[in-house]
Design a protein around this nucleic acid. Structure first.
Length: 557
RNA sequence: GCGCCUGUAGCUCAGUGGAUUAGAGCACCGGACUUCGGAUCCGGGUGUCGGGGGUUCGAAUCCCUCCAGGCGCGCCA
Protein backbone atom coordinates (compact mmCIF):
# COMPACT_ATOMS: atom_id res chain seq x y z
CA UNK A 1 0.00 0.00 0.00
CA UNK A 2 1.19 3.47 -0.81
CA UNK A 3 0.41 4.61 2.73
CA UNK A 4 2.90 2.12 4.13
CA UNK A 5 5.48 3.30 1.63
CA UNK A 6 5.10 6.93 2.71
CA UNK A 7 5.00 6.00 6.39
CA UNK A 8 8.28 4.14 5.99
CA UNK A 9 9.91 7.18 4.39
CA UNK A 10 8.77 9.30 7.29
CA UNK A 11 9.87 6.73 9.83
CA UNK A 12 13.37 6.85 8.40
CA UNK A 13 13.32 10.62 8.45
CA UNK A 14 12.15 10.61 12.07
CA UNK A 15 14.90 8.22 13.11
CA UNK A 16 17.52 10.36 11.41
CA UNK A 17 16.18 13.54 12.95
CA UNK A 18 15.73 12.11 16.42
CA UNK A 19 19.22 10.65 16.54
CA UNK A 20 20.53 14.10 15.57
CA UNK A 21 18.61 15.51 18.49
CA UNK A 22 19.28 12.59 20.83
CA UNK A 23 15.61 11.88 21.29
CA UNK A 24 15.65 8.32 20.04
CA UNK A 25 12.78 7.29 22.29
CA UNK A 26 10.34 9.89 21.03
CA UNK A 27 9.52 8.03 17.81
CA UNK A 28 5.76 7.67 17.47
CA UNK A 29 4.77 4.03 17.21
CA UNK A 30 2.24 4.57 14.51
CA UNK A 31 2.73 7.09 11.74
CA UNK A 32 -0.68 7.99 10.37
CA UNK A 33 -0.90 8.78 6.68
CA UNK A 34 -4.22 10.37 5.90
CA UNK A 35 -6.04 11.63 2.87
CA UNK A 36 -6.67 15.38 3.07
CA UNK A 37 -10.28 16.33 2.55
CA UNK A 38 -9.10 19.26 0.49
CA UNK A 39 -7.25 18.02 -2.64
CA UNK A 40 -5.22 21.21 -2.67
CA UNK A 41 -3.46 19.82 0.38
CA UNK A 42 -1.81 17.09 -1.61
CA UNK A 43 -2.41 13.41 -2.21
CA UNK A 44 -1.52 12.40 1.33
CA UNK A 45 -0.74 14.22 4.55
CA UNK A 46 0.85 13.40 7.85
CA UNK A 47 0.65 15.05 11.26
CA UNK A 48 3.65 13.34 12.81
CA UNK A 49 5.55 16.64 13.18
CA UNK A 50 2.81 17.99 15.43
CA UNK A 51 2.86 14.83 17.49
CA UNK A 52 6.61 15.08 17.86
CA UNK A 53 6.41 18.74 18.78
CA UNK A 54 4.80 17.92 22.09
CA UNK A 55 7.50 15.41 22.95
CA UNK A 56 10.66 17.22 21.94
CA UNK A 57 9.47 20.75 22.56
CA UNK A 58 10.06 22.38 19.24
CA UNK A 59 8.06 24.28 16.68
CA UNK A 60 6.00 21.79 14.65
CA UNK A 61 6.58 23.63 11.38
CA UNK A 62 10.34 23.50 11.95
CA UNK A 63 10.19 19.82 12.77
CA UNK A 64 8.14 19.20 9.65
CA UNK A 65 10.73 21.01 7.53
CA UNK A 66 13.58 19.08 9.12
CA UNK A 67 11.75 15.80 8.51
CA UNK A 68 11.35 16.75 4.88
CA UNK A 69 15.08 17.51 4.71
CA UNK A 70 15.81 14.01 6.04
CA UNK A 71 13.26 12.29 3.80
CA UNK A 72 14.77 9.60 1.55
CA UNK A 73 14.13 10.07 -2.16
CA UNK A 74 11.27 8.11 -3.74
CA UNK A 75 10.28 8.01 -7.39
CA UNK A 76 6.57 8.64 -6.85
CA UNK A 77 7.03 11.59 -4.51
CA UNK A 78 6.93 14.68 -6.67
CA UNK A 79 7.16 17.24 -3.92
CA UNK A 80 6.63 17.60 -0.18
CA UNK A 81 5.52 20.70 1.65
CA UNK A 82 5.02 21.97 5.15
CA UNK A 83 1.51 23.34 5.49
CA UNK A 84 -0.75 24.87 8.09
CA UNK A 85 0.29 24.29 11.67
CA UNK A 86 2.83 21.63 10.71
CA UNK A 87 1.31 19.14 8.30
CA UNK A 88 3.60 17.38 5.88
CA UNK A 89 1.80 17.20 2.56
CA UNK A 90 2.83 14.76 -0.14
CA UNK A 91 2.24 15.49 -3.80
CA UNK A 92 2.74 12.36 -5.86
CA UNK A 93 3.28 11.88 -9.56
CA UNK A 94 0.31 10.22 -11.33
CA UNK A 95 2.52 7.19 -11.75
CA UNK A 96 1.56 5.94 -8.29
CA UNK A 97 -2.05 5.69 -9.38
CA UNK A 98 -1.06 3.72 -12.47
CA UNK A 99 1.03 1.44 -10.26
CA UNK A 100 -2.01 0.95 -8.06
CA UNK A 101 -4.14 -0.11 -11.01
CA UNK A 102 -1.45 -2.53 -12.15
CA UNK A 103 -1.43 -4.02 -8.66
CA UNK A 104 -5.20 -4.31 -8.68
CA UNK A 105 -5.25 -6.08 -12.04
CA UNK A 106 -2.54 -8.44 -10.92
CA UNK A 107 -4.24 -9.38 -7.64
CA UNK A 108 -7.76 -9.62 -9.01
CA UNK A 109 -10.21 -10.97 -6.47
CA UNK A 110 -7.52 -10.77 -3.80
CA UNK A 111 -7.09 -7.03 -4.29
CA UNK A 112 -7.89 -5.39 -0.97
CA UNK A 113 -6.77 -8.37 1.08
CA UNK A 114 -3.81 -8.20 3.42
CA UNK A 115 -2.11 -10.31 6.03
CA UNK A 116 -2.65 -8.01 8.97
CA UNK A 117 -4.33 -10.69 11.08
CA UNK A 118 -1.79 -13.34 10.16
CA UNK A 119 -2.71 -16.78 11.47
CA UNK A 120 -4.86 -15.50 14.32
CA UNK A 121 -8.06 -17.44 14.82
CA UNK A 122 -11.12 -15.32 15.37
CA UNK A 123 -14.67 -16.41 15.92
CA UNK A 124 -17.65 -14.22 15.15
CA UNK A 125 -20.78 -15.33 16.95
CA UNK A 126 -23.96 -13.66 15.77
CA UNK A 127 -27.72 -13.85 15.36
CA UNK A 128 -28.04 -16.70 17.91
CA UNK A 129 -31.75 -16.00 18.28
CA UNK A 130 -33.67 -18.45 20.45
CA UNK A 131 -35.40 -21.20 18.46
CA UNK A 132 -38.83 -19.87 19.33
CA UNK A 133 -39.81 -18.08 16.15
CA UNK A 134 -38.65 -16.75 12.82
CA UNK A 135 -35.89 -14.19 12.45
CA UNK A 136 -37.49 -10.80 12.15
CA UNK A 137 -36.59 -7.18 11.60
CA UNK A 138 -35.86 -6.69 15.28
CA UNK A 139 -33.20 -9.35 15.65
CA UNK A 140 -31.94 -9.66 12.08
CA UNK A 141 -29.60 -6.72 12.20
CA UNK A 142 -26.73 -8.72 13.60
CA UNK A 143 -26.94 -11.05 10.59
CA UNK A 144 -25.67 -8.95 7.70
CA UNK A 145 -23.44 -7.10 10.15
CA UNK A 146 -21.76 -10.19 11.56
CA UNK A 147 -21.48 -11.86 8.19
CA UNK A 148 -19.83 -8.82 6.62
CA UNK A 149 -17.57 -8.33 9.61
CA UNK A 150 -16.45 -11.93 9.24
CA UNK A 151 -15.75 -11.30 5.54
CA UNK A 152 -13.71 -8.24 6.46
CA UNK A 153 -11.66 -10.05 9.08
CA UNK A 154 -10.98 -12.87 6.65
CA UNK A 155 -9.90 -10.29 4.05
CA UNK A 156 -7.22 -8.93 6.36
CA UNK A 157 -5.82 -12.34 7.06
CA UNK A 158 -7.66 -13.77 10.05
CA UNK A 159 -8.79 -17.34 10.12
CA UNK A 160 -12.48 -16.71 10.71
CA UNK A 161 -15.29 -18.90 11.93
CA UNK A 162 -18.96 -17.92 11.87
CA UNK A 163 -20.99 -19.38 14.65
CA UNK A 164 -24.63 -19.53 15.66
CA UNK A 165 -25.25 -20.37 19.31
CA UNK A 166 -28.46 -22.29 19.64
CA UNK A 167 -30.11 -21.87 23.03
CA UNK A 168 -31.89 -25.20 22.85
CA UNK A 169 -31.40 -26.41 26.42
CA UNK A 170 -34.48 -27.35 28.47
CA UNK A 171 -33.24 -25.06 31.24
CA UNK A 172 -33.94 -22.12 28.95
CA UNK A 173 -37.05 -20.52 30.41
CA UNK A 174 -37.94 -18.99 27.06
CA UNK A 175 -38.30 -22.44 25.55
CA UNK A 176 -40.62 -23.42 28.36
CA UNK A 177 -42.78 -20.37 27.80
CA UNK A 178 -42.79 -20.93 24.08
CA UNK A 179 -43.60 -24.63 24.44
CA UNK A 180 -46.43 -23.69 26.78
CA UNK A 181 -47.75 -21.24 24.19
CA UNK A 182 -47.80 -23.95 21.55
CA UNK A 183 -49.54 -26.26 23.99
CA UNK A 184 -52.21 -23.68 24.81
CA UNK A 185 -52.90 -22.98 21.12
CA UNK A 186 -53.08 -26.71 20.50
CA UNK A 187 -55.67 -27.15 23.24
CA UNK A 188 -57.65 -24.16 21.97
CA UNK A 189 -57.74 -25.70 18.50
CA UNK A 190 -59.11 -28.85 20.07
CA UNK A 191 -61.92 -26.75 21.49
CA UNK A 192 -60.71 -26.43 25.07
CA UNK A 193 -61.49 -23.23 26.95
CA UNK A 194 -58.01 -22.34 28.07
CA UNK A 195 -56.76 -18.79 28.55
CA UNK A 196 -53.61 -17.65 26.79
CA UNK A 197 -50.89 -16.48 29.21
CA UNK A 198 -49.97 -12.81 29.02
CA UNK A 199 -46.24 -13.57 28.87
CA UNK A 200 -46.75 -16.19 26.16
CA UNK A 201 -45.82 -15.95 22.50
CA UNK A 202 -48.75 -14.32 20.74
CA UNK A 203 -47.61 -14.56 17.12
CA UNK A 204 -49.88 -16.16 14.54
CA UNK A 205 -47.11 -18.58 13.66
CA UNK A 206 -47.66 -20.27 17.05
CA UNK A 207 -51.25 -21.00 16.06
CA UNK A 208 -50.01 -22.38 12.74
CA UNK A 209 -47.55 -24.64 14.53
CA UNK A 210 -50.34 -25.87 16.79
CA UNK A 211 -52.53 -26.53 13.76
CA UNK A 212 -49.77 -28.64 12.23
CA UNK A 213 -49.66 -30.66 15.45
CA UNK A 214 -53.41 -31.17 15.32
CA UNK A 215 -53.16 -32.25 11.68
CA UNK A 216 -50.36 -34.64 12.44
CA UNK A 217 -51.28 -36.05 15.84
CA UNK A 218 -54.95 -35.24 16.37
CA UNK A 219 -55.85 -35.36 20.05
CA UNK A 220 -52.87 -37.46 21.05
CA UNK A 221 -51.40 -34.76 23.34
CA UNK A 222 -54.66 -33.41 24.77
CA UNK A 223 -54.02 -34.80 28.22
CA UNK A 224 -50.43 -33.69 28.61
CA UNK A 225 -50.25 -31.75 31.90
CA UNK A 226 -49.92 -27.99 31.55
CA UNK A 227 -46.66 -27.71 33.47
CA UNK A 228 -43.00 -27.25 32.67
CA UNK A 229 -42.54 -30.80 31.50
CA UNK A 230 -45.59 -30.59 29.31
CA UNK A 231 -44.38 -27.35 27.80
CA UNK A 232 -41.01 -28.89 27.04
CA UNK A 233 -42.72 -31.87 25.45
CA UNK A 234 -44.50 -29.49 23.12
CA UNK A 235 -41.25 -27.69 22.41
CA UNK A 236 -39.68 -31.02 21.47
CA UNK A 237 -42.52 -31.61 19.02
CA UNK A 238 -41.77 -28.38 17.14
CA UNK A 239 -38.04 -27.98 17.79
CA UNK A 240 -36.84 -29.38 14.48
CA UNK A 241 -39.23 -27.11 12.61
CA UNK A 242 -38.00 -24.08 14.50
CA UNK A 243 -34.36 -24.86 13.81
CA UNK A 244 -35.03 -25.58 10.15
CA UNK A 245 -36.74 -22.24 9.96
CA UNK A 246 -33.70 -20.49 11.43
CA UNK A 247 -31.51 -22.20 8.85
CA UNK A 248 -33.83 -21.04 6.09
CA UNK A 249 -33.97 -17.49 7.42
CA UNK A 250 -30.20 -17.22 7.61
CA UNK A 251 -29.85 -18.73 4.15
CA UNK A 252 -32.36 -16.19 2.88
CA UNK A 253 -30.09 -13.45 4.19
CA UNK A 254 -27.19 -15.08 2.40
CA UNK A 255 -25.52 -16.19 5.61
CA UNK A 256 -23.85 -19.53 5.99
CA UNK A 257 -22.63 -20.44 9.45
CA UNK A 258 -19.62 -22.69 9.88
CA UNK A 259 -20.96 -24.01 13.16
CA UNK A 260 -24.39 -24.25 14.74
CA UNK A 261 -23.45 -24.76 18.34
CA UNK A 262 -25.98 -26.51 20.55
CA UNK A 263 -26.27 -25.46 24.19
CA UNK A 264 -27.77 -28.85 24.97
CA UNK A 265 -24.56 -30.53 23.84
CA UNK A 266 -22.68 -28.55 26.49
CA UNK A 267 -24.98 -29.94 29.15
CA UNK A 268 -24.94 -33.48 27.79
CA UNK A 269 -21.16 -33.54 27.70
CA UNK A 270 -21.09 -32.49 31.34
CA UNK A 271 -19.18 -29.35 30.49
CA UNK A 272 -21.58 -27.03 32.31
CA UNK A 273 -21.31 -28.99 35.54
CA UNK A 274 -17.54 -29.29 35.11
CA UNK A 275 -17.17 -25.53 34.82
CA UNK A 276 -19.38 -24.96 37.87
CA UNK A 277 -17.28 -27.41 39.86
CA UNK A 278 -14.08 -25.77 38.73
CA UNK A 279 -15.31 -22.29 39.61
CA UNK A 280 -16.38 -23.53 43.04
CA UNK A 281 -12.99 -25.17 43.54
CA UNK A 282 -11.09 -22.05 42.55
CA UNK A 283 -13.25 -19.88 44.80
CA UNK A 284 -14.64 -17.85 41.88
CA UNK A 285 -18.07 -19.25 42.77
CA UNK A 286 -19.73 -19.95 46.10
CA UNK A 287 -22.95 -21.40 47.54
CA UNK A 288 -25.48 -19.17 49.23
CA UNK A 289 -29.20 -19.62 49.95
CA UNK A 290 -29.36 -22.95 48.13
CA UNK A 291 -28.03 -21.31 44.95
CA UNK A 292 -24.56 -21.08 43.47
CA UNK A 293 -23.21 -17.61 42.75
CA UNK A 294 -20.39 -16.36 40.56
CA UNK A 295 -18.22 -13.62 42.04
CA UNK A 296 -18.73 -11.29 39.10
CA UNK A 297 -18.99 -8.39 41.54
CA UNK A 298 -15.26 -8.68 42.14
CA UNK A 299 -14.56 -8.26 38.44
CA UNK A 300 -16.41 -5.11 37.56
CA UNK A 301 -20.04 -6.23 37.55
CA UNK A 302 -22.56 -4.54 39.81
CA UNK A 303 -23.18 -7.65 41.84
CA UNK A 304 -22.63 -11.38 41.93
CA UNK A 305 -24.78 -13.47 39.61
CA UNK A 306 -26.56 -16.75 40.06
CA UNK A 307 -24.98 -19.71 38.29
CA UNK A 308 -27.29 -22.41 39.64
CA UNK A 309 -30.80 -21.66 40.79
CA UNK A 310 -32.02 -22.83 44.16
CA UNK A 311 -34.05 -25.52 42.37
CA UNK A 312 -30.81 -26.92 40.97
CA UNK A 313 -31.25 -25.74 37.40
CA UNK A 314 -28.27 -23.90 35.91
CA UNK A 315 -28.86 -20.41 34.51
CA UNK A 316 -27.80 -19.26 31.07
CA UNK A 317 -24.68 -17.78 32.66
CA UNK A 318 -23.54 -21.25 33.62
CA UNK A 319 -23.99 -22.35 30.03
CA UNK A 320 -22.18 -19.31 28.76
CA UNK A 321 -19.26 -19.90 31.06
CA UNK A 322 -18.94 -23.44 29.75
CA UNK A 323 -19.42 -22.14 26.22
CA UNK A 324 -16.65 -19.59 26.70
CA UNK A 325 -14.33 -22.28 28.02
CA UNK A 326 -15.05 -24.24 24.89
CA UNK A 327 -14.33 -21.24 22.66
CA UNK A 328 -11.17 -20.03 24.34
CA UNK A 329 -9.65 -23.20 25.74
CA UNK A 330 -10.90 -26.17 23.74
CA UNK A 331 -11.09 -24.55 20.34
CA UNK A 332 -8.37 -22.02 21.00
CA UNK A 333 -9.68 -18.86 19.38
CA UNK A 334 -7.37 -15.91 19.81
CA UNK A 335 -10.26 -13.50 19.55
CA UNK A 336 -13.97 -13.97 19.97
CA UNK A 337 -16.46 -11.37 18.85
CA UNK A 338 -19.93 -11.54 20.37
CA UNK A 339 -22.61 -9.65 18.49
CA UNK A 340 -25.70 -9.12 20.58
CA UNK A 341 -28.96 -7.25 20.43
CA UNK A 342 -29.72 -4.28 22.67
CA UNK A 343 -31.62 -6.46 25.12
CA UNK A 344 -28.30 -8.08 26.02
CA UNK A 345 -26.68 -4.83 26.90
CA UNK A 346 -26.73 -5.36 30.66
CA UNK A 347 -25.21 -8.76 30.12
CA UNK A 348 -21.84 -7.48 28.88
CA UNK A 349 -20.34 -6.56 32.29
CA UNK A 350 -21.24 -9.90 33.84
CA UNK A 351 -19.88 -11.79 30.85
CA UNK A 352 -16.63 -9.86 31.03
CA UNK A 353 -16.52 -10.50 34.76
CA UNK A 354 -17.17 -14.18 34.19
CA UNK A 355 -14.31 -14.36 31.69
CA UNK A 356 -12.03 -12.60 34.15
CA UNK A 357 -13.05 -15.02 36.89
CA UNK A 358 -12.13 -17.87 34.55
CA UNK A 359 -8.75 -16.33 33.89
CA UNK A 360 -9.47 -15.48 30.27
CA UNK A 361 -7.98 -12.14 29.24
CA UNK A 362 -10.92 -9.91 28.44
CA UNK A 363 -8.99 -8.26 25.62
CA UNK A 364 -9.57 -11.48 23.69
CA UNK A 365 -13.33 -10.96 23.76
CA UNK A 366 -15.19 -8.13 22.10
CA UNK A 367 -18.84 -7.39 22.61
CA UNK A 368 -20.75 -5.48 19.98
CA UNK A 369 -24.26 -4.41 20.84
CA UNK A 370 -26.24 -3.27 17.88
CA UNK A 371 -28.92 -0.72 18.59
CA UNK A 372 -32.63 -1.09 18.22
CA UNK A 373 -34.39 -1.32 14.91
CA UNK A 374 -37.78 0.29 15.00
CA UNK A 375 -40.39 -0.71 12.53
CA UNK A 376 -42.51 2.22 11.49
CA UNK A 377 -45.89 2.03 9.93
CA UNK A 378 -46.89 5.53 9.00
CA UNK A 379 -45.94 7.57 12.05
CA UNK A 380 -46.61 4.82 14.53
CA UNK A 381 -43.58 2.96 15.83
CA UNK A 382 -44.36 -0.65 16.65
CA UNK A 383 -42.29 -2.39 19.23
CA UNK A 384 -41.09 -5.65 17.87
CA UNK A 385 -41.80 -8.55 20.10
CA UNK A 386 -42.08 -12.16 19.20
CA UNK A 387 -44.27 -12.64 22.21
CA UNK A 388 -46.74 -9.94 21.20
CA UNK A 389 -46.85 -11.20 17.67
CA UNK A 390 -46.52 -7.90 15.83
CA UNK A 391 -43.49 -8.97 13.88
CA UNK A 392 -42.25 -8.49 10.36
CA UNK A 393 -40.17 -11.49 9.47
CA UNK A 394 -36.90 -11.14 7.65
CA UNK A 395 -38.24 -13.28 4.85
CA UNK A 396 -41.25 -11.04 4.36
CA UNK A 397 -38.86 -8.13 4.08
CA UNK A 398 -36.61 -9.96 1.65
CA UNK A 399 -39.57 -10.94 -0.52
CA UNK A 400 -40.60 -7.32 -0.48
CA UNK A 401 -37.40 -5.45 -1.33
CA UNK A 402 -34.87 -8.17 -2.12
CA UNK A 403 -31.93 -9.59 -0.26
CA UNK A 404 -29.39 -7.16 -1.69
CA UNK A 405 -31.38 -4.13 -0.58
CA UNK A 406 -32.01 -5.65 2.85
CA UNK A 407 -28.32 -6.25 3.42
CA UNK A 408 -27.39 -2.83 2.12
CA UNK A 409 -29.99 -1.09 4.34
CA UNK A 410 -28.85 -2.90 7.47
CA UNK A 411 -25.18 -2.36 6.70
CA UNK A 412 -25.40 1.32 5.86
CA UNK A 413 -25.80 2.50 9.41
CA UNK A 414 -23.31 2.24 12.20
CA UNK A 415 -24.44 -0.41 14.70
CA UNK A 416 -24.35 2.28 17.38
CA UNK A 417 -27.12 4.14 15.64
CA UNK A 418 -30.75 3.33 16.10
CA UNK A 419 -32.34 2.30 12.87
CA UNK A 420 -35.80 3.28 11.80
CA UNK A 421 -37.17 0.84 9.29
CA UNK A 422 -40.14 2.14 7.42
CA UNK A 423 -41.28 -0.69 5.22
CA UNK A 424 -43.26 1.59 2.91
CA UNK A 425 -40.25 3.81 2.48
CA UNK A 426 -37.92 0.86 1.95
CA UNK A 427 -40.25 -0.49 -0.70
CA UNK A 428 -40.56 2.87 -2.36
CA UNK A 429 -36.85 3.53 -2.18
CA UNK A 430 -35.89 0.16 -3.52
CA UNK A 431 -36.17 1.61 -7.01
CA UNK A 432 -34.08 4.63 -5.99
CA UNK A 433 -31.81 2.58 -3.82
CA UNK A 434 -28.08 3.17 -3.45
CA UNK A 435 -27.53 -0.53 -3.90
CA UNK A 436 -28.84 -0.29 -7.46
CA UNK A 437 -26.60 2.67 -8.11
CA UNK A 438 -23.61 0.54 -7.16
CA UNK A 439 -24.80 -2.54 -9.02
CA UNK A 440 -25.61 -0.50 -12.09
CA UNK A 441 -22.04 0.78 -12.20
CA UNK A 442 -20.92 -2.83 -12.19
CA UNK A 443 -23.24 -3.83 -15.04
CA UNK A 444 -22.13 -0.90 -17.15
CA UNK A 445 -18.52 -2.02 -16.82
CA UNK A 446 -19.54 -5.59 -17.68
CA UNK A 447 -21.27 -4.25 -20.74
CA UNK A 448 -18.11 -2.51 -21.93
CA UNK A 449 -16.03 -5.61 -21.31
CA UNK A 450 -18.50 -7.70 -23.31
CA UNK A 451 -18.42 -5.20 -26.12
CA UNK A 452 -14.62 -5.12 -26.11
CA UNK A 453 -14.38 -8.85 -26.78
CA UNK A 454 -15.65 -8.34 -30.31
CA UNK A 455 -13.71 -5.14 -31.00
CA UNK A 456 -11.21 -6.34 -33.58
CA UNK A 457 -9.29 -3.06 -33.74
CA UNK A 458 -7.93 -3.49 -30.21
CA UNK A 459 -5.44 -6.18 -31.16
CA UNK A 460 -3.26 -7.91 -28.63
CA UNK A 461 -1.27 -4.86 -27.52
CA UNK A 462 -1.17 -4.19 -23.78
CA UNK A 463 -2.78 -0.95 -22.60
CA UNK A 464 -0.45 1.90 -21.68
CA UNK A 465 -1.63 3.11 -18.29
CA UNK A 466 0.28 6.39 -18.51
CA UNK A 467 -2.34 7.57 -21.02
CA UNK A 468 -4.83 7.77 -18.15
CA UNK A 469 -4.64 11.41 -17.13
CA UNK A 470 -8.19 12.72 -17.54
CA UNK A 471 -9.52 14.12 -14.23
CA UNK A 472 -12.29 11.51 -14.12
CA UNK A 473 -9.75 8.78 -14.82
CA UNK A 474 -7.51 10.03 -12.04
CA UNK A 475 -10.43 10.28 -9.61
CA UNK A 476 -11.42 6.71 -10.35
CA UNK A 477 -7.82 5.51 -10.10
CA UNK A 478 -7.66 7.18 -6.72
CA UNK A 479 -10.69 5.29 -5.43
CA UNK A 480 -9.18 2.03 -6.62
CA UNK A 481 -5.92 2.86 -4.88
CA UNK A 482 -7.74 3.76 -1.65
CA UNK A 483 -9.60 0.48 -1.49
CA UNK A 484 -7.11 -1.73 0.38
CA UNK A 485 -6.65 0.85 3.13
CA UNK A 486 -10.42 1.15 3.40
CA UNK A 487 -10.85 -2.58 3.86
CA UNK A 488 -8.14 -2.65 6.50
CA UNK A 489 -9.69 0.23 8.39
CA UNK A 490 -13.22 -1.12 8.24
CA UNK A 491 -11.96 -4.46 9.56
CA UNK A 492 -9.79 -2.99 12.31
CA UNK A 493 -12.53 -0.68 13.51
CA UNK A 494 -15.11 -3.49 13.24
CA UNK A 495 -17.04 -1.02 11.12
CA UNK A 496 -18.70 -2.73 8.14
CA UNK A 497 -20.89 0.32 7.61
CA UNK A 498 -17.90 2.00 5.95
CA UNK A 499 -18.28 -0.37 2.99
CA UNK A 500 -21.62 0.82 1.59
CA UNK A 501 -20.38 4.38 1.76
CA UNK A 502 -17.15 3.59 -0.01
CA UNK A 503 -19.01 1.48 -2.57
CA UNK A 504 -21.30 4.37 -3.40
CA UNK A 505 -18.37 6.75 -3.83
CA UNK A 506 -16.60 4.25 -6.04
CA UNK A 507 -19.74 3.80 -8.13
CA UNK A 508 -20.02 7.55 -8.45
CA UNK A 509 -16.46 7.75 -9.79
CA UNK A 510 -17.29 4.95 -12.24
CA UNK A 511 -20.41 6.70 -13.50
CA UNK A 512 -18.58 9.98 -13.97
CA UNK A 513 -15.77 8.26 -15.84
CA UNK A 514 -18.33 6.42 -17.94
CA UNK A 515 -20.10 9.62 -18.86
CA UNK A 516 -17.04 11.66 -19.71
CA UNK A 517 -14.51 9.16 -20.99
CA UNK A 518 -15.54 7.13 -23.99
CA UNK A 519 -13.76 3.79 -23.64
CA UNK A 520 -14.25 1.93 -26.93
CA UNK A 521 -13.18 4.15 -29.79
CA UNK A 522 -12.23 2.70 -33.19
CA UNK A 523 -10.32 5.89 -33.99
CA UNK A 524 -8.16 5.66 -30.90
CA UNK A 525 -7.27 2.06 -30.09
CA UNK A 526 -4.38 3.02 -27.81
CA UNK A 527 -6.67 5.02 -25.53
CA UNK A 528 -9.29 2.29 -25.74
CA UNK A 529 -6.79 -0.27 -24.53
CA UNK A 530 -5.65 1.93 -21.64
CA UNK A 531 -9.19 2.71 -20.56
CA UNK A 532 -10.18 -0.92 -20.80
CA UNK A 533 -7.59 -1.63 -18.14
CA UNK A 534 -9.21 0.94 -15.90
CA UNK A 535 -12.59 -0.62 -16.62
CA UNK A 536 -11.21 -4.04 -15.72
CA UNK A 537 -9.71 -2.74 -12.48
CA UNK A 538 -12.91 -0.92 -11.48
CA UNK A 539 -14.88 -4.04 -12.27
CA UNK A 540 -12.64 -6.03 -9.94
CA UNK A 541 -12.96 -3.61 -7.04
CA UNK A 542 -16.72 -3.23 -7.36
CA UNK A 543 -17.11 -6.98 -7.44
CA UNK A 544 -14.80 -7.35 -4.44
CA UNK A 545 -16.54 -4.80 -2.27
CA UNK A 546 -20.00 -6.12 -3.16
CA UNK A 547 -18.67 -9.56 -2.31
CA UNK A 548 -17.55 -8.39 1.12
CA UNK A 549 -21.04 -7.08 1.76
CA UNK A 550 -22.62 -10.29 0.53
CA UNK A 551 -24.43 -8.45 -2.23
CA UNK A 552 -24.60 -9.76 -5.77
CA UNK A 553 -22.60 -8.10 -8.54
CA UNK A 554 -24.89 -8.59 -11.53
CA UNK A 555 -23.63 -8.55 -15.11
CA UNK A 556 -27.02 -7.41 -16.33
CA UNK A 557 -29.93 -5.79 -14.56
C1' G B 1 -32.87 6.21 40.38
C1' C B 2 -28.38 3.89 37.94
C1' G B 3 -26.04 2.44 33.24
C1' C B 4 -25.41 2.48 27.85
C1' C B 5 -26.62 4.37 22.80
C1' U B 6 -28.28 8.51 20.03
C1' G B 7 -28.96 14.07 18.99
C1' U B 8 -25.14 16.98 12.41
C1' A B 9 -29.32 20.23 6.10
C1' G B 10 -36.72 19.49 5.26
C1' C B 11 -36.00 13.65 5.89
C1' U B 12 -32.35 9.38 6.52
C1' C B 13 -27.41 9.37 7.88
C1' A B 14 -21.55 9.65 7.16
C1' G B 15 -17.63 12.25 9.46
C1' U B 16 -15.34 10.91 16.21
C1' G B 17 -8.52 15.35 17.36
C1' G B 18 -6.72 18.31 12.00
C1' A B 19 -6.51 22.57 7.62
C1' U B 20 -10.89 30.07 8.17
C1' U B 21 -15.71 26.20 2.30
C1' A B 22 -18.77 20.39 8.10
C1' G B 23 -20.18 16.11 3.69
C1' A B 24 -23.48 12.36 1.06
C1' G B 25 -28.21 10.10 -0.26
C1' C B 26 -33.44 11.15 -0.57
C1' A B 27 -36.81 15.08 -1.65
C1' C B 28 -37.29 19.77 -4.50
C1' C B 29 -35.86 23.22 -8.93
C1' G B 30 -33.19 23.72 -13.55
C1' G B 31 -30.03 21.60 -17.39
C1' A B 32 -27.21 17.46 -20.58
C1' C B 33 -27.36 12.30 -25.14
C1' U B 34 -26.62 11.12 -33.41
C1' U B 35 -21.28 6.16 -30.55
C1' C B 36 -19.80 1.51 -24.73
C1' G B 37 -26.92 0.44 -20.85
C1' G B 38 -30.49 7.42 -18.96
C1' A B 39 -31.37 2.61 -12.94
C1' U B 40 -26.61 7.95 -15.73
C1' C B 41 -24.26 12.88 -15.62
C1' C B 42 -23.97 18.46 -14.51
C1' G B 43 -25.72 22.83 -11.65
C1' G B 44 -28.60 24.78 -7.38
C1' G B 45 -27.30 24.33 0.59
C1' U B 46 -28.12 31.26 5.22
C1' G B 47 -26.65 23.84 9.23
C1' U B 48 -27.14 27.68 16.90
C1' C B 49 -23.01 19.92 14.52
C1' G B 50 -29.13 19.52 21.07
C1' G B 51 -27.71 23.95 25.03
C1' G B 52 -23.74 25.70 28.23
C1' G B 53 -18.79 25.39 30.25
C1' G B 54 -13.74 23.36 29.90
C1' U B 55 -9.02 20.96 27.81
C1' U B 56 -5.18 22.95 23.25
C1' C B 57 -1.73 25.28 18.32
C1' G B 58 -6.55 23.17 16.62
C1' A B 59 -13.08 20.34 18.94
C1' A B 60 -18.94 17.92 15.44
C1' U B 61 -14.89 14.73 17.49
C1' C B 62 -11.94 14.61 24.18
C1' C B 63 -13.77 16.08 29.55
C1' C B 64 -17.81 18.17 32.81
C1' U B 65 -22.86 19.60 33.12
C1' C B 66 -27.85 20.23 31.55
C1' C B 67 -31.90 18.99 27.96
C1' A B 68 -34.46 15.50 24.59
C1' G B 69 -35.35 10.48 22.46
C1' G B 70 -34.35 5.15 22.68
C1' C B 71 -32.81 0.80 25.30
C1' G B 72 -31.29 -1.98 29.59
C1' C B 73 -31.18 -2.84 35.00
C1' G B 74 -34.63 -11.14 37.01
C1' C B 75 -32.58 -17.39 40.62
C1' C B 76 -35.65 -14.97 32.03
C1' A B 77 -32.58 -15.32 27.53
Amino acid sequence: MIQDRLANLLREACLALLSDREHGDALPGDIQIETPSNPAHGDFACNVAMQLAGQIEANPRQIAQQLIDHLPADAVVERVEVAGPGFINFYLSPGWLHDGLAECLEQGENYGCSDFGAVQKVQVEFVSANPVGPIHIGNARGGPFGDTLANLLAAIGYEVEREYYLNDAPTNTQLQIFGGSVQTRYLQLLGEEVGFPEEGYHGDYVVELAQELVDEYGEKYRDVPRDTEGALLFFDLVEDKMIEQLHRDCAAMGISFDVWFSETKLHEAGLVQAQIDQLLASGAAYAKEDAVWLRTGQYGDEEDRVLVRSDGAPTYIASDVAYAADKFYTRGFDRVIYIWGPDHFGYVPRMKAALAAMGIGIERAEFIIYQTVRFLEGDEPLSLSKRRGDIVTIRELIEDIGRDAVRFFFLMRSVDAHLDFDLDLARQQSAENPVYYVQYAHTRLCSILREAESADYLGKVDGDLSLLIHPDELALLRKLADYPAEVLRAAQELAPHRLPHFARELAQAVHQFYTNCRVLDRDNPAMSRARLKLVAGSHIVLANILGLMGITAPEKM
